[in-house]
Amino acid sequence: MRFSKFLKVEAEIVVARYALVSDETKSRFEPVIFFHPEFAKRSGVKEGDVVEVEANGRAVKLKVKLSESAPESGGIIPNGIFASYLTNFDGFKRFKANIEVAEGEPSSVGEIIERVKP
C-alpha cells in the first residue's frame, strides 16, 4: 500500500506536440503524461503508474512516463484528445491540474468521445 495514492498534488501541465506519441491514423492515441523526474519523485509517482489527472472538473486516467523536458513542476500531456478534454478555451496549452495515483486502466479514446458527445 502506498501512501501517495491518498495525496493529491497540484501540477503545472503543458500541452505540446509529442512526436513519439503521434497517431496519424487517428485511431489509437496513447493515454500518457510525461512528468519531470523531479516532480515525479516529489509526488511519489513512478514510471508506469496510472494517475488520475483532474482539471476544470473533468478527469482522465493517464499512464506515467518520465521526461526531462517536462516542466519541473509538472508534466506534458501530448496534443490530443486527452489534453483537449481537460482544458477550457483559456488555458488551452498551459493549465493547472490535480494529480493522484489511481487504480485500473488508463482512459480510452472511445470513453472520452462518449463524454464529449453522448
Binding site: S84, F89, I113, V116
Partner: peptide, 27 residues
C-alpha cells in the same frame, strides 16, 4: 476538433448537425 479543441468547445458539437469530410475515421 474532438481531439484538438478544448472540451467547452468540442462538447458543443452535439448541438449542431455535423458533416465530416475526412479520409479517416477520426474521433
Amino acid at each position: 476538433p474532438v481531439s484538438s479543441l478544448p472540451y467547452d468547445v468540442a462538447s458543443k458539437l452535439k448541438e449542431v448537425k455535423t458533416i465530416v469530410i475526412d479520409p479517416r475515421m477520426s474521433p
